[in-house]
């Protein structure tokens, strides 16, 4: 054997050598990439939970992905995209109650004393009674209410269009801010909405369901109906309305859900 001499003369590879070589390269790459993928998956699975703040409860990289995905899909949002509406007969007679956070845990609540508080600035607030709101033009909607859990129900709501309300109380300047925050009177349930959804023509402050005043379980006297969002954003029994450029606190976003939750 003379290895030096063999090196000089490049013999064409035999079929067997070719097979071996290609197997080696492809399976080597296969297992290397597979190992890489497994490591990446392990990293994601074990990645630390995000710092609890406005959002919380999910792995930090997944939260970044949710926020990026929100930005992408917001490009598709338009106030001309309306949720499908149905004839009255299709509306459910018994409207499903899914959650009572901010309602059942508020024993001091007295509906007679209720007023909607709109925060104009740090020190200034507007207090609006339900009769004043009912005096504004009424908008009805019968649409398919969608829960983040996956169920949906055709429901009939009526109230004042949020844009009508904002215009009437001359809150246009405040709406220029990026977000609106809503909270129950006891502050136990709270949500944040970006401006686009606030100004959507089908977003209403509802005081009627199936032609009758809203019941306590559905958020009497005034609740939000926002068809471009999952049910989790349709806050019941609105106590405080505020505006900000940063995301307001949001109950379910703190529990690992997407902040946007738009449909």
């Amino acid at each position: 054997m003379k290895p030096t001499e063999q090196k000089k003369i490049k013999k064409p590879l035999t079929i067997e050598q070719k097979i071996k070589r290609r197997n080696f390269i492809s399976f080597g790459a296969f297992f290397a990439l597979g190992g890489g993928a497994a490591a990446g998956w392990k990293w994601l699975l074990n990645s630390p939970e995000e710092n609890a703040g406005i959002t919380g409860g999910t792995r930090a990289p997944l939260r970044r992905a949710l926020n990026k995905t929100e930005l992408f899909f917001r490009n598709f949002f338009s106030n001309n995209h309306l949720v499908k509406t149905y004839p009255k007969e299709r509306a459910a007679k018994t409207i499903r109650v899914n959650s009572l956070i901010g309602i059942e845990d508020d024993e001091d609540f007295d509906i007679k004393n209720w007023k909607l508080e709109v925060k104009i600035s740090q020190s200034k607030s507007l207090k609006i009674g339900i009769e004043e709101i009912k005096a504004l033009p009424k908008t009805e909607i019968i649409f398919d209410f969608k829960c983040v859990e996956g169920w949906d129900q055709i429901q009939h709501w009526a109230g004042v269009k949020l844009t009508d309300f904002l215009l009437h109380y001359k809150l246009d300047a405040l709406v220029e801010k990026n977000y609106m925050g809503l909270e129950t009177p006891n502050g136990e349930y709270y949500i944040g909405l970006e401006r686009d959804s606030v100004l959507h023509p089908q977003t209403i402050l509802a005081y009627e369901m199936n032609g009758k005043p809203i019941t306590n379980d559905h958020g009497a006297p005034l609740r939000l109906i926002i068809p471009v969002k999952y049910g989790i954003k349709n806050l019941k029994r609105i106590g405080v309305m505020s505006f900000s450029d940063q995301r307001p606190r949001d109950y379910w976003a703190e529990q690992g859900y997407d902040y946007y939750s738009g449909l």
């Binding site: 999910t58 792995r59 939260r63 992905a65 995905t69 983040v148 859990e149 529990q255 690992g256 997407d258």
Partner: peptide, 14 residues
């Protein structure tokens, strides 16, 4: 694990 499922689903869908 609904919230967790949605977070994974909406990343891996890409």
């Amino acid at each position: 694990r609904l919230a967790e499922g949605m977070a994974f689903h909406f990343l891996f869908m890409w």
